[in-house]
Design a protein around this nucleic acid. Sequence first.
DNA 1: AGTTACATTACGGTTTCCCGTAACCGAAGG
DNA 2: CCTTCGGTTACGGGAAACCGTAATGTAACT
Lengths: 222, 222
Amino acid sequence: MFTKVLIADDIDFNDVGAAQVLKELGVQEVQYSKYCDDALLKLKRAALDGVPFDLLVSDLSFKSDHQINQLNSGQELTRAVKSLFPELKVIVFSIEDRSHCIKALFDDLKINGYVLKGRNTMYDLKVAVQKAFLNQPNNVSAELWSLMQENPTTEIDAYDIILMKKLSLGVSQEQMEQVLKLEGVTPNSKSSIEKHLNKLKIYFQANNSVHLVAIAKDLGII
Amino acid sequence: MFTKVLIADDIDFNDVGAAQVLKELGVQEVQYSKYCDDALLKLKRAALDGVPFDLLVSDLSFKSDHQINQLNSGQELTRAVKSLFPELKVIVFSIEDRSHCIKALFDDLKINGYVLKGRNTMYDLKVAVQKAFLNQPNNVSAELWSLMQENPTTEIDAYDIILMKKLSLGVSQEQMEQVLKLEGVTPNSKSSIEKHLNKLKIYFQANNSVHLVAIAKDLGII
DNA sequence: AGTTACATTACGGTTTCCCGTAACCGAAGG
DNA sequence: CCTTCGGTTACGGGAAACCGTAATGTAACT
């Protein structure tokens, strides 16, 4: 089993539960970080001292407070960690249940497991740690796996998200053309913008732009 | 100190932390519910059996799963609980940090304390339970209290919220007149609707309706 | 009754959005 | 070389939103 594990989560309550699970699994040493930067620092320090961690369990969202942090999300932390210590296993641990977000974690960041915070976290985390240790794939709970198989938002690309994001920030379709040109985003003609938004309205069954943005916000896309 | 406490939270991890805090405070008996309906049932049963709970610690958001529940949020649970057992103390326990949401809990639902899930949950919960037991007011952490003092939404009334809600559901301003008349909401002329929306746009510094709805959604007003 | 103050309606003009149609352009393939 | 196809761009007409101004209604006070 892993011998030295770091838990990164800004909600202190979770430490207690995670610690209990890891202890049951026979992990020798468990440390905690409430901030991403602090987590990275601890990992670096341990590596320098010749006593590296062999597993990171990290949340995704970290609330910002008075402390100023370079890294502000589990994604950023994982990216940094994986580039510095490619051999370090990472399990992500969050309430995020949107399949495309989780898929991106596996595909882009090469994480070694995902645990959905919910009613079976204790059990799921236990299984995930064991699977990660044994290098077993498909390291998500069954219910989540089925969710990831459906691909509801595959047809929505980065461009669409930019459009909706700008709309939600008050950019009119008139201004959109100028804004996109300024930022070098293409396509940027009024016509294309209208076409893409129209596609999105059909896709999400929105009556108009206001409705579309409201839906996108509800889905957490923007 | 309280003798019998129920914790309602769909994330099992939190139970461990909460249990530890309550134990430190000398609470005799702690029970858990992962569903709102189950929580209400436990409270009713205990009251019937003559051994009622004297504190409920509840989360706000409960994820839905295969189980079909009547109550699906901490708000609904609290409302039901307070009407059945007005004397039962309730502490809400959530990551929700929008001031008007928390304010509404105190004002409308008469909760006895609010704990923000974050980096000091263990301490905050401890203090909140003690304060609730001693009937002390202002039962929120200092940082949250300052947030609640700003009153950004006092001039926004129920009518405004209806308007924005309908907008976000895809009702056009054209249709709005008919819809409001159907529902007996007044004023309901195109002109008044425009005027009110205009006031809201100025108030929230929104460029247009899309922007307005996005802002309202961010603030949790709709 | 008359006046004032305020909110709701009514109406018209301008801008923006919406939704067609059509032209353009580059890539893939016969 | 030409055709097809997917996507971008261009333009125009009708609908909706936006933003004035003016009329009407209503409640309070003199």
